[in-house]
C-alpha cells in the first residue's frame, strides 16, 4: 500500500542499478521544493567521491552512485543526511533574481485566462506581480519550471496533438510557467514571448538558470522583444541578493 501522508517524507527509493531518489513530498509544494533544493545543495557541497551526480527535480533529489564503490555505505550515508536536519522545515533563501522582459501576446493567452477565471489584463498583472522561483531545470537543457502561481492557475495541459512553440516562449499549466529553451511541441498553453535564451552553448554561462533563482517578468511589447533578441540574455537583468 502506498500511504499518502507527509509523515513518510523524506523517503529514499532506488532508481535503476546506481540511482537513488530522495523524495520530500508526494506533491509539488513550496516546502518540498525548498527541501529538495536545499538537500541537493548540501549533498553537492560534501563533494563525496561515491556520489557521481546529483540533480533536484520538483520535490525530490536524484543521486547517481559510483558502482565501483561501497553502495550500502553510500546509501546509509545518504539516509543519515536525510535524517540529520528538518529539510521540510527550512525557509527559502533566495540567492539571485532575474528580471525578464516578456510580451504577453501568446496565441493561447485568452484561453489560459479563461481557464483560470480571470481577464487577460489580470493574467498579465498576476504574472508580473508574482515572485517566481526556478523550481527545477529539466526536460530540455537549461529549461526552467517556474512556480508557483496562485491556486486558480492550476489549469490542465491541453489534450490531443501538442502544437509547437518557439524558443523563448512562455507557457503555463498546473500553477507553473516554463520558458522554452528550444522550439518544441507542448501541451502547456503559450501565453507570452521572451527573447531569453535559457541555453546558449556559446555563452560563458551556457545554462542561464540555477535551481532556486528568483524570476520576475517585466511586460514588454512584441517590438521590444524582437530588438532584445540581439542580447545574449534577451534583455534580462540578473541581481545577486544578499
Amino acid at each position: 500500500m502506498i500511504v499518502h501522508t507527509q509523515e513518510r517524507f523524506p523517503e529514499l527509493r532506488f532508481v535503476g542499478v546506481d540511482g537513488v531518489l530522495v523524495r520530500f513530498g508526494a506533491d509539488v509544494t513550496e516546502q518540498a521544493n525548498v527541501a529538495a533544493f536545499s538537500f541537493h545543495q548540501h549533498i553537492d557541497s560534501l563533494r563525496l567521491q561515491s556520489i557521481l551526480e546529483s540533480a533536484p527535480s520538483l520535490s525530490a533529489v536524484f543521486l547517481r552512485l559510483d558502482l565501483a564503490g561501497d553502495l550500502d555505505a553510500t546509501v546509509q550515508l545518504i539516509e543519515a543526511e536525510m535524517r540529520a536536519k528538518d529539510w521540510l522545515g527550512l525557509p527559502f533563501k533566495p540567492g539571485r533574481r532575474w528580471t525578464i522582459p516578456c510580451s504577453f501576446d501568446g496565441p493561447q493567452l485568452s484561453e489560459a485566462a479563461g481557464l483560470a477565471g480571470v481577464s487577460e489584463a489580470s493574467t498579465i498583472a498576476q504574472i508580473t506581480d508574482s515572485r517566481l522561483r526556478v523550481l527545477t531545470l529539466g526536460f530540455a537543457p537549461g529549461q526552467p519550471y517556474l512556480g508557483s502561481l496562485e491556486p486558480h492557475w492550476n489549469i490542465p495541459r491541453m489534450g490531443g496533438v501538442a502544437p509547437k512553440v518557439p524558443a523563448g516562449a512562455l507557457v503555463v499549466a498546473v500553477r507553473q510557467l516554463i520558458i522554452f529553451s528550444f522550439e518544441a511541441p507542448t501541451g502547456w498553453r503559450h501565453i507570452g514571448q521572451t527573447a531569453f535564451r535559457c541555453f546558449d552553448k556559446n555563452r560563458t554561462t551556457p545554462f542561464a538558470f540555477e535551481a532556486g533563482d528568483v524570476v520576475r517578468f517585466a511586460q514588454a511589447s512584441a517590438g521590444e522583444i524582437e530588438d532584445l533578441r540581439r542580447d545574449t540574455f534577451g534583455g534580462a537583468r540578473l541581481e545577486t541578493l544578499t
Partner: peptide
C-alpha cells in the same frame, strides 16, 4: 510529480 528520468 515530474521526477528525474534516466536512459534505460
Amino acid at each position: 510529480p515530474s521526477e528525474t528520468v534516466i536512459p534505460g
